[in-house]
């Protein structure tokens, strides 16, 4: 087995070259190249994590916006409903008020007309009594030749008329 039979002749050379080669590997590759590779891996991991976090934030923001949009929509709808019901109520009140005013005007007019009518009727009735009394006096004078005063005639006519 050369590993053991040659050991005394070769150990110095083996140690020497191994230490040179392993030292080069340790210092130039282990401490020179490896940290750079790890740094780029770390940078990539950090970038991925950052991007994921940014995406998560954007998603949360979008969710928020959606929620607030829905809330805005509901608020606008209730506002519109309140406005329309207020407008309806106001319109109804206006109509009531106008109706009441018109009613009042109409009833005033009706009352005035009725008063005029009553006056006219009274006037007409008075006219009829006078005419009837004149006519009764004329008829008495013609039939009996008796002279009747207009006051007597009027009393008689009134009596007759009130008896119907």
């Amino acid at each position: 087995m050369p590993q053991i039979s040659q050991i005394l002749e070769t150990y110095a050379s083996q140690f020497f070259w191994l230490l040179i080669v392993f030292g080069l590997i340790y210092f130039t590759i282990g401490h020179g190249m490896l940290p750079k590779i790890e740094a780029s891996m770390d940078a990539r991991d950090r970038k991925i994590a950052d991007d994921l976090a940014a995406a998560e934030r954007a998603r949360a923001e979008a969710d928020n916006l959606g929620d607030s949009g829905a809330a805005d929509l509901t608020a606008a709808r209730t506002e519109a409903q309140a406005k329309s019901s207020a407008a309806k109520a106001k319109a109804a009140k206006d109509a009531d008020a106008r109706l009441a005013k018109a009613d009042a005007e109409i009833s005033i007019k009706v009352a005035a007309s009725e008063a005029e009518l009553a006056k006219a009727t009274a006037k007409a009735l008075a006219g009829i009594e006078a005419v009837a009394a004149d006519a009764a006096a004329d008829i008495v004078a013609k039939v009996s030749g008796a002279k009747v005063t207009s006051a007597q005639a009027a009393t008689a006519v009134k009596a007759v008329m009130s008896h119907g």
């Binding site: 070769t10 110095a12 050379s13 083996q14 020497f16 070259w17």
Partner: peptide, 10 residues
């Protein structure tokens, strides 16, 4: 004094 020859192993 040490034999550190460049060998096939090196």
């Amino acid at each position: 004094g040490y034999d550190v020859s460049f060998t096939n192993s090196s």
